[in-house]
Nucleic acid binder design. Structure first.
Lengths: 190, 190
DNA sequence: TAGGTTAGACAGACAAGTCTTACTCGGCCT
DNA sequence: AGGCCGAGTAAGACTTGTCTGTCTAACCTA
């Protein structure tokens, strides 16, 4: 079947790019390495993704699905007993994540910093970071916190700051952020 | 005089590299662009800096002098009335900084993310970030706060998180971080 | 048969770093 | 005092390697 072959080629490319881009960034990974690892031809890659930028944009969307939604949000909601506990559980998820030896930091921050905020992929990264913030905002609403939008912006500062600290090597960054997060929740209770 | 000519050539290279690297990052700026803007010959650059990496390392040290020490620390100490006020004034300095239209974010974070934590320049960036943390730690000691080392690590999370938020476009990130910083100080008072 | 696929050559741009040639100029020697 | 030497410099060609993206030609397979 044509459709399934095409789909599986596209998925091979995307999953290979996902692994390489998350670990080593965008500029350090060339399309030649992607096609070699994916076992596909260069023409096939350029058939599915007209340019490397398009592949990066698809990668960022994949990252949003697998990381933002399927990992951070889902896991935090599962682990927390109540809405406030679900918010705090974000940093428990982070704590596990920071402890992994293949910890690769936040691809959205990475791409934003690497490509710049005016580049098409940098702008997309800002949108995906906004998605994370809006996930937090929704959880804050469910916890009946005051000013959920402002709360989410402050909360997001803790998330991003702890990720950078973890990249530097601070294995306890998530717990530190969680302690500050507790105070932030207290300050936003009705 | 030979020495002064050499010094001025080195300074021309470094100040040009400083302007370009802070604004556009490392990988996006080639040595050809640096020599063109500095008005010096390629051989002169490679006489003073054996490789581009060496130039980047010198740039990071320059950044530490001009930004970490001469801007953030000095300004915060000048603006704050007492040690606690000096700590909080860091975020006032950040607030001014985030408002500048040539805001270029933290070069140490940028280089760390761009080059990776195992690269020689990435490792140097981690050291320079540690310097910032130790500046905060010293100020926390002067403010007689409990556990100044732990305090500084948490404080640094707020600094780095607010910088990323400012990069995304949140102009009030510094004030948001300052509010959380106030709570952190309160939690660390004796 | 037609459309997707593979393998790989190729173009064009750009990177870091080396090297050659000519120039400038302070300090030293005769 | 005048001429020369050597170090630093300018300008830019050049090497080597990388990158993205295009293109050709043969090859499945529905």
């Amino acid at each position: 079947m044509v459709a399934s072959t095409a789909t599986s080629a596209r998925e091979k490319i995307l999953s290979t790019a996902y692994a390489l881009f998350t670990q080593r960034g965008i500029r350090d990974v060339g399309v030649d390495e992607i096609i070699a690892r994916a076992g596909i031809a260069k023409a096939t890659l350029y058939r599915h993704f007209p340019s490397k930028d398009d592949l990066v944009l698809a990668f960022l969307q994949q990252r949003e699905q697998l990381w933002t939604f399927a990992t951070v949000e889902s896991e935090a909601r599962r682990r927390g007993a109540d809405p406030e506990g679900q918010l705090l559980a974000i940093f428990d998820v982070f704590d596990d994540w920071f402890g992994r030896d293949d910890f690769e930091a936040c691809s959205f921050i990475n791409v934003l910093v690497e490509m710049g905020r005016t580049h098409v992929t940098g702008r997309a990264s800002i949108q995906h970071l906004n998605t994370i913030r809006s996930v937090v905002e929704r959880m804050a609403e469910q916890a009946s916190l005051r000013e959920p939008a402002e709360f989410a912006k402050s909360w997001h500062i803790l998330m991003k700051g702890s990720i950078i600290s973890a990249t530097e090597g601070d294995r306890q960054a998530a717990l530190r952020a969680k302690a500050m997060a507790r105070q932030l929740i207290a300050a936003h209770r009705s």
